[in-house]
C-alpha cells in the first residue's frame, strides 16, 4: 500500500511577479512501516512536498496516489485515500477549536463518517497514545491546558483519524526538552504498534538520526539525497553542508575525534561512541 509521488511539479502564485517553483519533477514512494525523516532548510520545498503527500495541494504536473488511487480526484475513493494520510501541521495547537478536548479529537473521526461508538473508541485510543488520561482531560477545555498538553490534544486529533501514513511537521517546535522527548516517545509507540508510515519533517538532525529509518534531503525543490540516515550523515556530509544543513552533534564529535587521531567509527548513538573511546583507551593502556 505505497504512497506514491510521480513526477510532481508545483509552482506558487503562478503568473504573478511572486511566482516560485517549489517542487520540480519529484518522484518518490513511501511504504507502510517506514519512518521517513524529511530535512531541508526553510524554502527548500519540504513543506510543499508533504502538503502534496496529504492531498492538500494539487500538483501542476504529475500525480500523487495512495495504493493507486489519485488523491486529487473528486470521488469517494479519493476522499478515503486522503483520510488515510494524516497531517500534523506546525504548532497544531493553533488549529484547536472545540469546547472540550473530546469534541476536538472527535472532529476527524466524525468527518470520516464513523458511528458514535467507533468515534468514542478512536478518541480514547488517540488520547491513550498521547498520554492524556481520558477521565481527567476529556471534558476539559483545550484552551486551558499548558502548551505541551494542547500540542498533544492536537496530535491526538490527527491520530484519531487512524491514518496509515502520519505526517508530522516539526512536532517538537517550541517545546522544552522534556515535552519534546515525550512527544517522540508517543509517536514511536504509535509507529511500532500500528505499523504505519511516519513522515517527520524536521530541522533537527539529531531527531532524524535517532528515529528515522529513511532520510530524504530536500533542496531547491528536489530530493537530493534519499537513503539510510546513518549512511547520509557518514558519507554525504559535503552535500548536506552545501544545502545549508549539518550532521547531528554525535557525528560531529566522532569527526573531531578522528581529526585528532582517535580512530572511531561514526555512530548515531552517543553510548556506542563512548564505548569505542573506552576501548581505545584500554588498548592504549595495554601497550
Amino acid at each position: 500500500m505505497p504512497l506514491n509521488l510521480q513526477n510532481v511539479t508545483f509552482t506558487y502564485m503562478k503568473g504573478t511577479p511572486f511566482e516560485k517553483t517549489a517542487l520540480s519533477d519529484v518522484s518518490l514512494q513511501i511504504e507502510k512501516g517506514e519512518f521517513v525523516a524529511v530535512i531541508g532548510h526553510t524554502g527548500s520545498g519540504k513543506s510543499t512536498l508533504v502538503q502534496h503527500l496529504s492531498g492538500l495541494l494539487h500538483p501542476d504536473k504529475g500525480s500523487v496516489t495512495v495504493d493507486g488511487v489519485n488523491l486529487n480526484a473528486k470521488n469517494a475513493a479519493a476522499k478515503k485515500a486522503r483520510n488515510s494520510v494524516g497531517m500534523v501541521f506546525q504548532y497544531p495547537e493553533h488549529q484547536i477549536f472545540a469546547e472540550t478536548v473530546y469534541e476536538d479529537i472527535a472532529f476527524g473521526p466524525r468527518n470520516k463518517g464513523l458511528g458514535p461508538d467507533e468515534v468514542d473508541r478512536a478518541v480514547r485510543d488517540a488520547m491513550a497514545f498521547v498520554g492524556l488520561d481520558f477521565d481527567s482531560f476529556a471534558k476539559r477545555s483545550p484552551f486551558r491546558l499548558s502548551g505541551g498538553q494542547m500540542r498533544r490534544v492536537a496530535i491526538a486529533g490527527v491520530i484519531a483519524m487512524e491514518p496509515d501514513y502520519l505526517i508530522l511537521d516539526e512536532p517538537s517546535a517550541g517545546l522544552d526538552p522534556r515535552s519534546r522527548d515525550a512527544v517522540f516517545k508517543e509517536v514511536m509507540a504509535l509507529y511500532k504498534k500500528r505499523g504505519i508510515a511516519v513522515i517527520l519533517v524536521t530541522h533537527n538532525m539529531e531527531e532524524a538520526a535517532r528515529y528515522a529509518s529513511r532520510l530524504l534531503v530536500i533542496s531547491g525543490g528536489q530530493v537530493i539525497l534519499d537513503g539510510v540516515p546513518h549512511d547520509i550523515f557518514t558519507n554525504h556530509k559535503d552535500e548536506l553542508l552545501a544545502a545549508s544543513m549539518d550532521v547531528p552533534p554525535v557525528y560531529k564529535l566522532a569527526d573531531c575525534l578522528n581529526a585528532h587521531g582517535l580512530p572511531v567509527e561514526r555512530t548515531p548513538e552517543l553510548a556506542a561512541l563512548e564505548k569505542q573511546i573506552l576501548e581505545l583507551r584500554r588498548a592504549k593502556h595495554a601497550d
Binding site: 502538503q51 496529504s54 492538500l56 476522499k79 486522503r82 483520510n83 494520510v85 494524516g86 497531517m87 501541521f89 497544531p92 493553533h94 488549529q95 472532529f107 476527524g108 468527518n111 470520516k112 486529533g157 490527527v158 483519524m161
Partner: peptide, 15 residues
Amino acid sequence: ETDRIIKAQTARGAD
C-alpha cells in the same frame, strides 16, 4: 494563517 487552518482542518476530513 487562514490558509494553514483551512488546510489543517481539511486534513482532518472537514468538508
